[in-house]
Design a protein around this nucleic acid. Structure first.
Length: 479
RNA sequence: GGCCACGUGGCCAAGUGGUAAGGCAGGGGUCUGCAAAACCCUUAUCGCGGGUUCGAUUCCCGCCGUGGCCUCCA
């Protein structure tokens, strides 16, 4: 497959390095709970990995994504809350991992953290100093010597002198040059510290990623990803650090960046108060709807989260689910669309992860299945293809997606049951619904449509939709 | 101010030098006791102005607009 690389600006083939395809993606700094933008990012890279594994079954795909669990913000936040930075980070990581699982986001093979990789980081800094690309400033720490590296700025495509313009001097830190950045920060009172040849302290921001990426993927690897907001300075600095250790041209072959999630047209930010947390998203929308929303546009484009867009995404998911719903019928010849679907899907995904086009293949497949069902064919081959391709995109499309009654009011259901003289003693809400439907079916058999419609309306008001089909009535919880 | 993207039907969103996927919404129809779902039909010349070309939405220039980065950020 091919991906557009931020480094070269062109579309390049994803190729194995050192016998495998290694992918490193910048994870979160767990100083607070994660938001929908973090989820969108990892969701996309998870799809990339799923696709690579599906497309290249014989190739090892190693997926590494980190946690920067020591950093200014974590320390600052912990201080505000009067608690230990480590436990704060751990709490947010635990929450985030549970949420990722709920969202169906593929877990990385390795999730390194700064606090458990200090040895690798210290070793990397040592090499950078040895190679003349960094210098220690007593009492301040270690700085990377940006001007010593000729290629600095090649990722963000900005010459060094141009970047200098917007930079403010930081007096008192002993920097040789304003753009030099910290590899190691000398210990301050009350902060977590580790010993080092340059005195106690902690790693600066960028070094952890290059050190951990090279530790788990080697000096050079296939793909490095992250949000487009990380291009500068984070990824630029990662390249500089890595090349200062392993030489020019090492490190990631291809740099991939995803666009930002906007909320109602604006970037999510604390000051605007428009941050949508993962918790809120999970509460309001289904994982598949969020996934469909994210994948319905190209990963590099910014994506605007609106209630309308999410409603549309949910309806789209319903449509795919509907096509997969089992209904007994005879097996017929598979619709012709099924044969070409796989090829079209691969073509789309190979071309810079064009998930929007890939989704179109799924929807075409859904239509083909529904059409064949109209003429009495089961279409199971096409169904299996749809399910397989959907799973590559991480769409769960669970058969029981709309059977979850946990959000339906039990009291309301009991009230409806008693209103229609149905025994509501059943502990299981589903049994109550089934009993009501049986009552309704009896009414329909007697052509008492007033009663049957009243039951349907009552259930609908409670959030349960009833549909009559050839095999009887089916119910589903409104999304 | 500098750098980089983007501007496609009511909304969301792919895409191509030779008049444009898919989803949502709307309209008409089939099916249904009625609905719902599903199926069929139906809605676009691609921000504006130039240029290159036999031909541009697709390439180039300018303008307008939106977003991102340039400081922490997925």
């Amino acid at each position: 497959m091919r991906l557009r690389s931020t480094l070269s600006g062109s579309v390049e083939a994803v190729a194995p390095e050192n016998g495998r395809i290694g992918v490193y993606v910048c994870g979160v700094t767990p100083y607070t709970e994660s938001h929908i933008g973090h989820a969108m990012s990892l969701l996309v890279y998870g799809v990339l990995i799923r696709y690579l594994r599906w497309r290249h079954p014989g190739v090892e795909i190693r997926y590494v994504s980190n946690y920067t669990d020591v950093d200014d913000k974590i320390i600052e936040r912990a201080l505000e809350l009067g608690r230990d930075p480590a436990s704060l980070a751990q709490q947010n990581i635990d929450l985030w991992e549970a949420q990722q699982a709920a969202l169906g986001i593929l877990a990385p093979d390795v999730r390194p953290r700064v606090t458990t990789e200090i040895d690798a980081i210290v070793a990397a800094i040592g090499r950078i100093i040895e190679n003349g690309h960094a210098y220690a400033v007593p009492g301040a720490g270690v700085y990377f010597r940006v001007r010593s590296l000729p290629g600095y700025g090649k990722l963000s495509h900005r010459p060094l002198d141009e970047m200098r313009a917007g930079t403010r001097e930081e007096p008192g830190h002993g920097k040789e040059f304003p753009l030099d950045f910290a590899l190691w920060k000398a210990a301050k009172p009350g902060e977590p510290t580790w010993p080092s040849p340059w005195g106690p302290g902690r790693p600066g921001w960028h070094i952890e990623c290059s050190a951990m990426a090279q530790r788990y993927l080697g000096a050079s690897f296939s793909v490095h990803g992250g949000g487009t907001d990380l291009v500068f300075p984070h990824h630029e600095n990662e390249i500089a650090q890595a090349e200062a250790v392993t030489g020019p041209g090492s490190f990631a072959r291809l740099w991939m960046h995803n666009g930002m999630v906007l909320r109602d047209g604006e970037k999510m930010s604390k000051s605007l108060g428009n941050v949508v947390s993962v918790a809120e998203a999970l509460d309001r929308w289904t994982p598949d709807a969020l996934r469909l929303f994210v994948l319905s546009k190209h990963y590099r484009q910014p994506t605007n989260l609106t209630d309308e867009a999410m409603a549309a995404a949910q309806r789209g998911v319903d449509r795919l689910q509907q096509a997969l719903a089992e209904e007994p019928a005879r097996e017929g010849s598979p619709p012709p669309e099924a044969a070409s679907a796989r090829a079209r899907f691969v073509e789309a995904m190979d071309d810079d992860l064009n998930t929007a086009q890939a989704l179109a293949v799924l929807f075409d497949l859904a239509r083909a299945i529904n059409r064949s069902r109209e003429v009495g064919d089961h279409g199971s081959a096409a169904r299996a293809t749809l399910r397989e391709l959907a799973s590559v995109l991480g769409l769960a499309l669970p058969a029981d997606a709309h059977a979850d009654l946990s959000r339906i009011s039990g009291a309301e259901l009991s009230e409806i049951a008693s209103r229609f003289d149905v025994a509501a003693a059943e502990a299981d809400a589903a049994d109550v619904v089934e009993a009501l439907l049986a009552q309704r079916q009896a009414a329909r058999a007697e052509r008492d449509f007033a009663l049957s419609d009243a039951i349907r309306d009552a259930l609908s008001e409670a959030g349960i939709e009833v549909q009559d089909g050839p095999q009887g009535a089916r119910w589903s919880v409104r999304g």
